[in-house]
Structures are given as C-alpha cells and as structure tokens.
Computed example of a mutant assay.
Amino acid sequence: MSNTSRFTTTENRRHTTYNATECRSNTLGLEEIINKQLEVPQPLLTEEQIEQINFTLIEALHTNKQVYLTYYKKGQCITEKGFIQFVDSLGNLFIFIDEVFELKNKMTLSELIDVRFT
C-alpha cells in the first residue's frame, strides 16, 4: 500500500484520482485566480488631491503627527497608521514608520492614494 493520500471524484461516471500534492497545487492555482479577481486598478488622483497629500505629508513630517496612509500595492489599496520620517518630493519618495512593527518603509509618492491625520 502506498503512503500517498489519494482523493477520488466522480464526474460523469468517470473517476479521477488526485494525490495530496496535486490537490495542494490545484488549491494554490484557485487562490491565485481569486486574488487576481480581487485586484483593483490604481486610482487616478487629481492635481488638487496630489497637492493636499503633499501638504499633509510635509505637515506630518514637521509636527510628528500620526497619519493614516493609504497606498496602492499589487492591485490592492492598503491603509496603515504611522509616522512620516522623510519626504523627498523631487526624488518622488518618502519614508513611513508603521505603528505596528515600527519598521521603516520606503515608498514612492506615486503609490500614495490618501494621507490623513489620525
């Protein structure tokens, strides 16, 4: 008797047998498909929204006030809470320290969707 687990399905009176590795592989494929369907396009910001984000970033940097930062990454809009440590408008980047792990995150300004004070 084999040590490999086997699963059988009945489909139109045919039997198809899968081993445990094949089932995990199929599950990963389904997970990827579901994640792809959940992706959203990156929101386009108006000039006014971009100016407001820049203003809030600079104020948060100078006052060390905590912010909610919403950014776009891999098809998702993500919101985190933390502090702005550095802003380089010309270089299109900033450094954000998240509240949970207190890790420095270097991001581009073009990834930003919204910045608000907590």
Rank of each mutant, 00 (worst) to 15 (best):
Q76F: 15
V40S: 04
E39I: 01
I34Y: 14
Q37V: 02
K104H: 10
E22V: 04
T27G: 04
Q66D: 12
L109N: 01
E31A: 09
D114V: 01
G29H: 11
I34C: 04
T70E: 11
V67F: 03
F101T: 07
T118L: 11
F96W: 03
E80I: 07
N64K: 13
Y72N: 00
N19G: 03
Y68W: 12
P41I: 02
L38P: 00
I95G: 01
F55V: 10
N3P: 08
Q37R: 10
L30K: 08
I50S: 07
E99S: 12
G29R: 14
F117P: 00
C23D: 06
G82T: 01
R14L: 11
I95E: 07
S110T: 13
L44I: 09
K36M: 12
E102C: 09
V40F: 02
Y68E: 11
L30Y: 08
S110D: 15
M107C: 05
C77D: 06
N26R: 05
F83Y: 15
K65Q: 14
C77S: 09
V67C: 04
M107A: 05
Y18N: 03
D114Q: 14
V100H: 11
S25A: 15
G29I: 06
K65G: 04
R24C: 07
I97D: 06
T27E: 13
K73F: 14
Q76R: 15
N3S: 11
E99Q: 12
T16S: 09
I53G: 02
I58G: 01
N35E: 15
T56C: 04
T63L: 11
N54F: 08
S89I: 13
R116I: 05
V67S: 02
E39C: 11
L57W: 00
P41C: 03
F101W: 07
N26G: 04
I97L: 14
M1F: 12
D114T: 09
E102S: 12
L90G: 07
N92F: 07
N3W: 13
I113G: 03
Q85W: 04
R6K: 14
N105E: 06
N64F: 13
C23Y: 10
T118N: 13
L90F: 08
C23K: 13
L28K: 14
Q85T: 10
S5G: 08
L61A: 02
K104E: 13
Q66E: 15
I97E: 15
Q42F: 00
L103K: 12
R13F: 09
H15V: 12
R14I: 08
R116H: 05
I113D: 03
E32H: 11
L45M: 01
S89Y: 10
R13Y: 09
L109M: 04
G91Q: 05
G29C: 07
G75C: 02
Y18D: 03
T16H: 11
F55K: 15
S2K: 10
L28C: 08
L61V: 00
H62P: 00
E102M: 10
F86W: 04
R13T: 07
N35L: 12
Q85M: 09
N54S: 06
T9P: 02
V40A: 03
G29Q: 14
P43R: 00
Q52E: 14
N92R: 09
S25V: 09
K74G: 06
L44M: 08
T63A: 08
G75P: 01
F86D: 05
I97P: 01
T16K: 10
